[in-house]
């Protein structure tokens, strides 16, 4: 009974992408729940940004055991940048890192981001997607920075809200 590689791979591929789509949809379903409970006085963007912070705080807990200063500041920043890009990739993006011109400066470049598509499906403004990404990363970096005693920042350089082209974020030592 030989293995049909095409069949096995396509089956696994479908399951992976199905699961990735559920990540985004689940987030926006819960966003809807949160807004209903929060009432009209609360701005939807504030709710989403708070969620992004909580996501970031939790993700940082899985970062901390793996942080390592033994490769020095430059190596540390590069590994950190890759870890941040990795979160995006897990969701179904194509994100890469590049060293910047300044010491310890890293650019995270995402050329395929599934989040704007999911957001559009739920009628969520595109700018919320970019702001939440930035807030989540910054929330992670707050704990990482406190842990390593190094102030870290991330800022959106270029946000492509409809998922076309490239989103660029700059990670640096503040």
């Amino acid at each position: 009974m030989p293995v049909n590689v095409e069949k096995e791979l396509s089956q696994s591929w479908k399951r992976l992408h199905g699961a990735q789509a559920e990540i985004g949809k689940t987030f926006y379903r819960w966003r809807q729940v949160a807004l209903e409970f929060a009432g009209d006085e609360v701005a939807p963007l504030d709710v989403s940004l708070r969620a992004a912070e909580i996501f970031g705080k939790d993700i940082s807990k899985s970062f901390l055991p793996r942080l390592n200063w033994l490769k020095g500041e430059e190596g540390f920043m590069l590994i950190l940048g890759k870890a941040l890009a990795g979160i995006w990739n897990t969701d179904g993006a194509i994100a890469k890192v590049e060293k910047g011109d300044n010491p310890g400066e890293i650019f995270i470049k995402c050329s395929r981001d599934p989040w704007p598509t999911w957001a559009k499906e739920f009628g969520v403004p595109m700018e919320e997607v970019a702001l939440c990404r930035e807030r989540m990363y910054q929330s992670i970096l707050e704990d990482v920075g406190a842990f390593m005693n190094i102030p870290l920042k991330v800022e959106m350089q270029k946000a492509i809200s409809r998922g076309q082209g490239e989103t660029v974020m700059r990670l640096y030592k503040a």
Partner: peptide, 8 residues
């Protein structure tokens, strides 16, 4: 100091 925990 309030250094975050490395272990959950």
């Amino acid at each position: 100091s309030a250094v975050p925990q490395r272990l959950r």
